[in-house]
């Protein structure tokens, strides 16, 4: 049984069909890339999976459960976490607190025991911070724990978003262009980092990427979309030489 199943997902914005009859499945432990030119509907697919948008038609099944139309926080609670294409960190909280917010959904203490710092809450709170620090440490960010997120270099901010997503204890991680705006060396490093967390945290990862070559080396399976529709799906070699993919990327040689 696949961990995630998307069944003919369609999303229309007024007259525009951003995603059309999109279907695919993800096996547990898989690392899969979703590629496509600008405006092809990649982010919209993420928004449909995470509940930010409700699909016009089609279903999302996660872990055997139909989660179509669920509220985003409930979807996160059942094990799907994501990062955003345009970084969305909490500016008013420090780096560690940004991560600890991701642990809030697992908090058992009620607001009353929290407000009065009763022992059950204090224990949980300490554990949250300890786990948060541990997570930052394993991602090499612990020295920045008490900094403001906006003071971090761009690459670190992207990593922090991943750390924050990991704090929710996901089974499936959705990364929206994690290498955007990075130099080739940095993005290569990031891809190594992604394969590292895939194994360490026993994740399943779906990764959006603009530039095909970034994912070529690490993703055994790639889905290429254009105008909201799947145009090819398969190994990097297959995708690279697929006429429709070449056509979609035609004139934008840089991406190939």
């Amino acid at each position: 049984m696949s961990l995630l199943k998307l069944d003919s997902l369609t999303k229309q914005f007024g007259g525009l069909t951003a995603v059309k009859e999109f279907s695919t499945g993800l096996e547990a432990g898989e690392l899969c890339a979703l590629i496509g030119p600008n405006g092809s509907g990649k982010t919209t697919i993420f928004n449909l999976i995470t509940g930010i948008y409700t699909p016009t038609s089609g279903t999302v099944t996660f872990n055997g459960q139909d989660i179509t139309g669920w509220r985003p926080d409930r979807i996160t609670a059942c094990g799907i976490a994501r990062t955003f294409q345009n970084i969305r960190l909490f500016k008013g909280l420090n780096v560690l607190e940004n991560v600890v917010v991701g642990k809030h959904l697992r908090l058992k203490s009620d607001p009353f025991s929290a407000t009065f710092h009763l022992p059950n809450y204090r224990r949980e709170d300490e554990a949250m911070f300890a786990e948060g620090l541990e997570l930052l440490d394993s991602l090499g960010l612990s020295r920045l724990a008490y900094e403001a997120p906006t003071s971090l270099p761009y690459g670190e901010q992207r990593k922090l978003e991943i750390a924050r997503a990991l704090a929710t204890d996901p089974k499936l991680l959705l990364l929206d262009e994690p290498a955007a705006g990075m130099s080739p060396t940095d993005s290569e490093e990031l891809m190594v980092f992604i394969t590292h967390i895939l194994k360490t945290y026993k994740l399943t990862i779906l990764l959006i990427e603009h530039q095909m070559r970034v994912v070529m080396g690490i993703c055994p399976r790639i889905i290429a979309i254009d105008h909201g529709e799947t145009i090819a799906e398969g190994t990097p070699e297959y995708i690279q030489n697929h006429p429709k993919v070449i056509e979609a990327y035609l004139g934008v040689a840089d991406y190939a």
Binding site: A81, F84, R88, G92, V100, H104, E124, A165
Partner: peptide
Amino acid sequence: TSYGRAMSAIRDDEVAAEALG
């Protein structure tokens, strides 16, 4: 508290806060 941090997260970015559960 953790609830207070969640409130600040909502203030800073509702979409991200909700996506974090």
